[in-house]
Design a protein around this nucleic acid. Structure first.
Lengths: 203, 203
DNA sequence: CCGCCGACTGTAATGCCGTTACAATCTGGG
DNA sequence: CCCAGATTGTAACGGCATTACAGTCGGCGG
């Protein structure tokens, strides 16, 4: 296309492929084809696929903007941070999936981690409990949303049915009906986030 | 080896490969080689790799034994269920990783899910909050331990460093030192599980 | 202007992977 | 004993990441 091939253009194109067709759609062949270039050129500019994915993780960190906590109480601000993390994950699902597989999620969310630590500090936590609460909240959000992304990737029809009671009488009709559905993960998140933060603040 | 090839033997061997070399080590070629058999025989008995992985998920559910909650209070018993789920996940990390990728985790842990629902019911929850709390706790444990398994798979040396404060003075020395380390996920789990359960019981 | 050297790109191969068309074999029932 | 269906093997296809090797291009010293 536009003159010379650069490392930047390779990575840009890799990002667009990943965002439109997922990680599985990103092959070195597809990449060079989209660039109108031979496969060795890519290897010249980015090394190999591993290095390319590292570069994508770098991009991901840059794309996940620094969090700006909203609210007045630490509890509100922690909730705001967690929700914006969730939003970032949903907006860059595939890219963060890559970071996930490479064990670089903590790296990508380092700014958010810092913001969380500051809020727990403001709430009065110190020392080990401060560190524990910070790690736990990050873990909570990341674990939640990564599981969510897996479920989102699985076609509904192919999921195993959730036969919770298997013939026996359910203990609670309303709950049983709800539990028979696919779990609404976003709802599970909203519901449990507050409870979780409250519990952590009590450390 | 022992006479005829059966679907059972194929799946058994697939399990041992997955457990010893991980999912990446499971190729149809490696499998047939370990069985001393040609590749088409495998296809005859299990269909294709997708069907094989489905069979592995089935095995996984069977391997994850039914939970037997310990303790007297619902809180203790919920904690016990969560911890035994964690143990099961750690013992069958690779197999459950497969279930994870196929969106079948809820299926594998259906018995645990039921046990959790019973305990929340005993704690007085009914209807929607009962369903929400159940889903949230499952989500919590699964999300936690799947992220943990990813980290466990990443070689320590290759992880990005966690520069939390980047030059600025940390707000808390003890916490900063702790946060600079790799998060101890098991500890994060132990620490936050109780807080989480307490919060959920307040639904 | 020539020639050269390093940056860059292409051709074609290697060795994996999942999958399958086809032929050969083996086995139980008539 | 012989046939049909069950089971297995040979050999291929296309796709994947990677790389050895051979070029091509651009700028710079002579």
């Amino acid at each position: 296309m536009a003159g010379r091939l650069t490392r930047e253009r390779v990575i840009d194109t890799a990002v667009t492929i990943v965002e439109s067709e997922g990680l599985d759609g990103l092959s070195m062949r597809a990449l060079c084809q989209k660039l109108g270039v031979s496969v060795t050129s890519i290897y010249w500019h980015v090394g190999n696929k591993d290095a390319l994915l590292d570069a994508l993780v770098e991009r991901t960190q840059a794309a996940v903007v620094a969090v700006e906590p909203r609210g007045t109480t630490p509890r509100q601000r922690l909730r705001s941070i967690a929700l914006s993390m969730l939003t970032a994950i949903e907006e860059h699902r595939e890219l963060i999936g890559i970071a996930h597989r490479r064990g670089a999620v903590a790296y990508v969310f380092a700014p958010a981690r810092r913001a969380v630590a500051i809020e727990f500090h403001a709430a009065g936590l110190r020392g080990a409990p401060l560190a524990d609460a910070t790690n736990a909240l990050l873990q909570f959000v990341v674990g939640f949303s990564l599981t969510e992304s897996i479920v989102a990737r699985t076609p509904s029809g192919e999921r195993h049915p959730l036969e919770l009671w298997e013939g026996e009488a359910p203990i609670d009709e309303v709950a049983a009906r709800r539990l028979a559905l696919e779990p609404d993960l976003r709802r599970a998140f909203e519901v449990s986030l507050d409870a979780f933060i409250v519990g952590l603040l009590a450390l």
